[in-house]
Design a protein around this nucleic acid. Structure first.
Length: 515
DNA sequence: GTAGGGTTAG
């Protein structure tokens, strides 16, 4: 574990760090007078320590988002015993300690946060504690708990904060609501919320976002209507809820309402939230006006995520040329891996395998390293474009050159690609070779589809067997298999299957077109 | 020196 090696290390910086960050003034370096070159009088110990604390603190502020810097500062704190000693309570020490916790909370590193807290609390870092815990400490610790996926440490902190008298502290209580709902304990979060004597918009937003995240859209909506002051975050959260629940028209309606009724300007995040809703309704006109708005307000050029999402949006609205044109307008320096993956996936959607391959090559030349998502997009492009040999070659490259472990979807794409091309034996071989831990029904369903298309009855039976081993309730499988039997003239088998389907009480939802 | 919404696959 990186943290433990840090603790044991005598070196102030973690071994993995590429370079040690320069902090002025350095702790044990003697200053030289600039005029004479003679050593200056060393600062008193306390002042020297405070200077170092300040240096580390401002370093954290400047590089707040960097995990490497946080770990380095942590290492420095441990190695130099900075939070230790017989000082009376020092505000700088507390400041530094909290800032470090904040970094861990933002970076979702609960373990590091708790170890730091424990060390200070137990006194191994603070002989008579120069650090005093305050509301900030508990806010950050609670935020660190998010992502643990369990509320146990959070519940303990909850008790502790009550004991310490933070029961009406808005920040601490809001952090509690956040911790509970983010960990899935929506009811507990609601209880804390209900008991709060004072709330602010963030408190409401935290609860609303948590509710939409867990699909409780109606409850979120009523809170949204009830809240006294709605900010852009509130609107974004509720819009996102509708988008996720596949209710794009309501999402777009709310977006318009936000701008016209409340006069609130959408943020970058609001744009990111509304794009999938626009893609869902597939309106080129709305897509274009979203593009224009982004240009006007500057999001398209200031935030690469907005630009990337626009590529995807154009593509999903059927405008591959606009997607391509917009992509090309982004300067190479701004394009990141997601930009390239988005355009490759756009080509994939439109069956343009050659273009996807060219895009991939250009990306590689530009020095970007593809990930699993990039490869999945490329494979899908080859599958939809019928470029089987290229697909197999890229799969091999993904595993051997880039050392990426294929996921179920990569195998699924291969099966689809081989199956479409009628190379059923190879497709079945891939399906059989999928590691057991990640094998799923989709792989076999894909193969069954290909068998049905190419009329291979025996293989279709084998695929159906595999599907039924895993899942029995999906009527589509029976229908496909029925068609295979019927197509081969094996009407008795077809009838037997239909009875089997009735027994399994599988139901097939009748197909319908949205167009 | 606090807290909240986050781009690509499907």
């Amino acid at each position: 574990m990186r943290f433990l090696s840090l603790l044991c290390s005598t070196s102030p910086a973690p071994a993995r760090a590429k370079r040690t960050l320069e902090i002025a003034p350095a702790p044990f370096r003697r200053r030289r007078s600039s005029s004479t070159g003679a050593p200056a009088v060393p600062l008193p110990r306390e002042r020297r320590r405070e200077a170092l604390q300040n240096g580390l603190f401002s370093l954290l502020r400047r590089h707040g988002g960097s995990r490497r810097v946080a770990l380095q500062v942590h290492g420095r704190v441990v190695a130099s015993g900075l939070l230790l000693r017989d000082l009376s309570s020092s505000s700088t020490a507390t400041l530094l300690f909290n800032a470090l916790l904040r970094c861990y909370a933002l970076d979702r590193l609960p373990l590091e946060a708790f170890l730091l807290y424990k060390d200070v609390q137990s006194g191994s870092l603070s002989a008579s504690s120069s650090v005093s815990f305050n509301s900030f400490t508990y806010t950050f610790l609670l935020n660190s708990c998010v992502g643990l996926g369990c509320t146990v440490p959070g519940v303990q902190l909850h008790g502790l904060t009550l004991k310490l008298g933070f029961e009406s502290h808005v920040y601490v209580q809001t952090a509690l609501v956040y911790m509970y709902v983010a960990c899935g304990s929506v009811g507990e979060g609601g209880k804390v919320f209900d008991c709060m004597p004072v709330r602010n918009p963030v408190t409401w937003n935290v609860l609303i976002s948590g509710l939409t995240k867990w699909g409780r859209l109606d409850l979120a909506r009523s809170l949204f209507e009830e809240m006294p002051v709605r900010t852009v975050v509130s609107w974004t959260a509720i819009i996102d809820g509708y988008t996720r629940m596949n209710r794009p028209n309501e999402a777009i309606h709310l977006f318009r309402k936000m701008v016209t009724d409340d006069g609130i300007a959408p943020s970058e995040i609001t744009m990111l939230t509304i794009f999938p809703a626009i893609a869902n309704i597939g309106s080129v006109k709305v897509c274009q006006s979203a593009h224009c708005y982004g240009e006007k307000i500057g999001f398209n050029s200031s935030d690469i995520r907005v630009a990337n999402s626009l590529i995807d949006l154009y593509s999903k609205c059927g405008c591959i040329m606009s997607a391509w044109k917009f992509f090309e307008e982004i300067t190479d320096a701004r394009k990141n891996l997601v930009s390239w993956t988005s355009i490759i996936s756009a080509f994939a959607m439109h069956g343009m395998g050659e273009e996807a391959a060219q895009g991939f090559d250009r990306m590689e030349i530009g020095g970007l390293k593809p990930n699993q998502v990039t490869f999945l997009s490329v494979l899908n492009a080859f599958s939809h474009g019928g470029l089987v040999e290229e697909g197999l070659r890229f799969f091999e490259r993904m595993v051997n050159v880039y050392q990426l472990v294929p996921e179920t979807k990569h195998y699924g794409s291969l099966v689809d690609m081989l199956g479409r091309a009628g190379r059923l034996k190879e497709a079945e071989k891939v399906a059989v070779e999928v590691p057991r831990e990640i094998a799923n029904v989709v792989i076999w369903r894909t193969l069954l589809g290909a068998c049905s298309f190419h009329g291979d009855v025996e293989m279709a039976e084998r695929a159906t067997e595999r599907i039924l081993e895993i899942e029995r309730g999906y009527g589509g499988d029976y229908v496909l298999m029925y068609n295979v039997f019927a197509g081969a003239g094996r009407f008795n088998d077809a009838e037997r299957l239909r009875q089997l389907m009735d027994q399994a009480t599988a139901s097939k939802v009748p197909g319908h077109s949205l167009v």
